[in-house]
Design a protein around this nucleic acid. Structure first.
Lengths: 245, 245
DNA sequence: GTCTATAATCCGATAGAC
DNA sequence: GTCTATCGGATTATAGAC
């Protein structure tokens, strides 16, 4: 483990040691199995199968297949017959886990929103008065989070608009929350003269797409051999150069 | 008309006068009517209606309705019945203009790709050896282009993956072309010591989402009262601050 | 709890009248 | 050129056997 040398007096504080993707994944369990277990707990009353290990196992198969098929051609064009045959369950069995196709969508969206909230809203205490490193932590954690749950985030990004008002609002709220966290770090940095920011909200708004591109265009970066760590470094140095004059 | 004062010796060259959105729209005719007229010319052999003004008028109604319905819930979930009733044409009449739903998708994608190519591949001659202002021109022109054709670009962005290999490849090629234009300006600026760029392709790749966010998240910026001109200024100063140390 | 079989509906596409 | 009517097939959702 490295030791952080913060040097507030120099114009360019030293870089806090970056977590690796692996370290992040050891800190937060975001495995499909774990996420589906939470999904089961959250929808116990509507899921007819009550044996926990059976239900969770089937939810894993349902979720994995749904994400795979939807991210190829869209949730609406995925038929429940395809989902049934690809996941190894029957049509009738599927309806033990959700009462409509829309509900399935909302169950997945719900877990994405919950993961964002849980992961991003607890920055380390030590960074409370250190806006530069809090921004770094935010960018890094977001990239690692979306890297770990990539198919989930692509799904949420592409399909949120397609269904009920409830789904759309969930997505909008989640997105605005992330932007608010960025804006907060920017405002703090501005107040401490660490950053030079003209319009805080607008700047936060244009930092956001840098985070989204990582999972939306994941295949592009994979083709070019860019790792999550490299991407974090790239956007971090880009953003910091833009914010510190 | 303003006169451009380029001052290559100073570290921060003076800003070239920015076109307004209106000036751009007077330079390029990107009205739905004009785009549908080109669409008619390009598909004359498969469109059964031969009277030009009739065909173009109906293509306008078809296109406008398709973009409106698709951008709300996705192209695949828009039924041809919805398209017929909303556009005021009958199911049968629609099939005079395309032979399948996929063809309709490709017709729209084709006009988007053509508009990108035509608009972005002819930067003013005066900017040939001026990477800073060529980058500015590129960002500005892209924002104005996508502002003018916003529903078209959202459609291309969201639906390209959903259909045939042909449609996907069209979208990927068009996207990479834009990225190459950015990369070219960056490489040029690096060679002239105007920019400091570590990894040219990666930097170009992360500038791209700044351009896409303008049309993908258009409603967010509308809600906040951000104009196209303001957005251009925001991303231009952000990018330039990041590139010039 | 899961399966098979089927109901009820909606879809893209076409044929033929006008 | 456009409309109405209709075909074959696919879709979501359910009923009932095991």
């Amino acid at each position: 483990m490295h030791v952080t040398h913060t040097n507030q007096s120099s114009r360019r504080p030293t870089v806090a040691p970056m977590r690796t993707l692996k370290a992040f994944q050891e800190e937060f369990d975001l495995s499909t199995k774990f996420l589906c277990a939470r999904m089961f707990d959250r929808h116990r009353e509507t899921i007819r199968t009550q044996k926990r290990h059976v239900a969770v196992g089937n939810l894993v198969r349902i979720t994995k297949t749904t994400l795979a098929l939807s991210n190829r051609t869209g949730f609406h064009s995925m038929s429940l017959r395809d989902l049934a045959s690809e996941s190894g369950l029957s049509m009738g069995a599927l309806y033990n886990y959700f009462d409509s196709k829309d509900t399935l969508l909302l169950m997945i969206l719900g877990e994405v929103a919950a993961a964002v909230k849980e992961t991003l809203s607890s920055p380390p205490q030590a960074l409370e008065h250190d806006p530069l490193n809090r921004l770094r932590w935010l960018l890094e954690t977001h990239v690692y989070l979306t890297e770990t749950m990539q198919p989930w985030f692509v799904f949420a990004y592409m399909e949120a608009k397609a269904f009920s008002r409830e789904g759309r609002e969930l997505a909008v709220r989640s997105e605005l929350a992330t932007e608010a966290l960025i804006a907060f770090a920017l405002a703090d940095g501005e107040a401490q003269s660490v950053f030079v920011v003209d319009d805080i909200d607008l700047t936060a708004a244009i930092i956001k797409p840098l985070l989204q591109d990582w999972y939306v265009k994941r295949s592009k970066y994979r083709r070019r051999g860019v790792s999550a760590e490299q991407y974090v470094r790239a956007i971090t140095s880009f953003v910091e150069a833009a914010l510190t004059r």
